[in-house]
Structures are given as C-alpha cells and as structure tokens.
Simulated assay, not measured.
Amino acid sequence: MQKIKTALLSYGMSGKVFHAPFIDFHPGFELMGSWERTKKLIQQDYPAVVSYPTLEAVLATDAQLIIVNTPVATHFEYAKKALLAGKHIIVEKAFTTTVAEAQVLATLAQEKGLKLAVFQNRRWDSDLKTVQQVLEDGSLGEIVEAEFHFDRYNPLLSPKQHKETANSGAGILKDLGPHLIDQALYLFGFPNAVCASVRTTRQNSLVDDWIDMQLQYPTKNVRLKASFFVREAIPAYQLHGAKGSFLKPRGDVQEDYLKTGKKPNLDSWGTEPLDKEGTIHTEIDGKIIHGKIPTLQGNYYSFFDGMYNSIVNNTVEPVPALDGVRVMQIIEAAIQSSSEKRVIEL
C-alpha cells in the first residue's frame, strides 16, 4: 500500500486528539511529525516522529500532505504556503476567515492539481449518520423544519488566548458554527436566505458566544443554535416532517474516547450507548410508529480514508474546498444579517 507522508502544523488538542491517532492508525499514512513552537510533546506519544521548529522546516520535508490545524486566523496564510510548496492539505474548520480567502485557496489547489479538504469530521458523527439515514428512508415525509443544536454549559472564558481575543478567527460562529452549518448544507443543500442573531453573553467576553440562525429553503426552515448557557440539554437534532418527527440527543462518543487516549479501530469504534438513541414518532403505511431508532456507528477514520483515496486514486476529497467556501458564505451572511437585523438573500 502506498504511504502518504503526513505532517501536522500543531500538536495541541486537535493534533493530539483528532488527527495524529487516525494518521497513525491508517495503513496508508506515515506520520512524520509536527511543527511545535514551544511545548515539544509529539515525541512523547510517537517517539519515531520529528518535532519541527518552524513552518519552513515542515514545508522543506518530503511530506506530501500537510494538516493545517492552527488557529483559524492563520489558516489562509499557512494553507497557501503549503499549496505553493506543492503539498496536499487538510484545513481545520473554520476553513478561513472570509469567503474571499476560501475562494483563493480553492482556486490555487485546483490550478496546482493538489487536493484540499476541509476537516468537517462531524459528518462522521454517529448522530449525523443516523439523522441522514432517517431523512433518506423518507419515514418523516417531506421535511417542514429542522433544528440543530451544539450547546454547552461553560460560562468561563477559554484559557486559549486565540479563542477569546478579538481577532478575525475567534468566536463561536467560526468555532462551533461551521459544524452546524456544514451538517445542514450536507443534508439539505444551499439555502435561499439566512436570518441570524450573533451575540456575546458571557461576562467579560470579547467575542461572540451565542448564535441563532435560520437557513431558509423554499419548503422548509433549518434552525442552527449554539450557546454556552445550556445546562439542561435539549435534543441536538430535531426533524419535523409531514408524517412525523425524529428527536436525537447528541451522543457521539469519539471525542471523549480520543481525549482519554483510546485508539481508533474499525470494529466497535464510535458506538453510542443505547440511552442516546433517537425517538421517532411517525406514520408508515397507515400505522403509527412511536419508538427508538438504533444509532449508526460513527468513525472519523472514514474522512482520512477518503482523503487517502483522493490523493492516491484521484477521487473527490471527503469534504471538498467548495463545501468550505459555501460554509464561509453562510457565515458571512449570518454576520451581515445580525449586524443589519434583516434577512440576507443568497
């Protein structure tokens, strides 16, 4: 099997939790190391790899794939440099800070014949995979409305300064927002209009930390919400159709597993506990159905496997650059809608 030499641009939480374990586990990748500015930690977990002192040192290697998992405000600069160095790239969310930056990267990758994928791993959450199955089997009838939440209870400011200082990449709209927006676009396509409210609710916060947006389609509305002040969680996914409803709590276990050091596998990985199953209440062939829907297995491995095939077999990236551009278009529309207090036509 061809090996794709891969390097990270950071070994903080995202590198340690979301990327390195899967790159190390997948037989088609070779983890070369990571750019580490101050703390030198990657060799504690992967002794055979290299801790690079600078971005230039990473780009000078024979790495074929670079994972841009640095703060959002740096994505455009680092991703552009990696593409100009002839590297395929995976860029964390938010893809960039503006639509214009996203379009530049998408065009540059295409011109150079390089692969560019946006790391929207939440498409492979057990939650969303189950929601997708319910939509595809048509058991709810035509969808009238949907509501997705990414809520937490955490009124304290993050110790990570890049998340709490006023900069072009900070705020919940560009942190949790891309997950919600990407999932909505993945399931329902691009909307006709956006109506949004973006606020700051935590004491002493300098960045937005509460969002409520509606994606308006010809026959339905999709509402997306994220907040740090939800102590008693409501269903993270709510679908209502002409025949019935499906409610699903957030239950994907992968991030929790990875944070405790568990290593991914292809068998039991991403299997939710039974108490997180979603509830369906609908009518099928004249019969009322009210019960639980088994949750599908999630696995972020599928993203990396898709990226491997994209590079080796020239297939489409698991989350193409155009999908990242579209998410940024919604984000910019949400900012404009909140500022001008009006619906933004797309």
Rank of each mutant, 00 (worst) to 15 (best):
N299V: 04
I172M: 15
N69W: 08
N221W: 03
Q133V: 02
L135H: 01
E232D: 10
P249N: 01
D285W: 13
A102E: 09
A242V: 06
N265F: 10
Y78K: 02
P53S: 05
A321R: 02
A100T: 14
G12W: 08
F190A: 05
N265K: 10
H88N: 15
I234D: 04
T260K: 06
D137Q: 05
L185A: 12
K220W: 06
A236Y: 05
G251Q: 01
Y308C: 08
G33L: 03
E145N: 13
P264W: 12
T74W: 14
A85Q: 07
F150M: 08
Q2N: 13
W210K: 12
D175M: 11
D127R: 00
G251V: 03
Y301K: 00
I330N: 01
T271M: 10
I66M: 15
F76Q: 04
G113S: 02
K287C: 02
V194Q: 03
P320R: 09
P155S: 11
K248D: 08
E345D: 14
P47K: 12
Q44D: 14
I330P: 01
Y78I: 00
D212E: 13
L224A: 08
K39A: 13
K287L: 09
P320A: 12
V230F: 02
E277T: 10
L128D: 06
T219L: 11
L135N: 00
T130V: 03
G15T: 09
D125P: 00
T315Y: 01
T97E: 07
S14Y: 11
V50W: 15
R342S: 00
E142K: 11
L206E: 10
K129M: 14
M32T: 12
D305Y: 09
G12E: 07
G298C: 09
S126A: 15
H19E: 13
T271Q: 14
P318L: 11
G251N: 10
L185S: 04
V131F: 03
D209H: 04
T96C: 15
P21T: 01
L31F: 14
A117K: 02
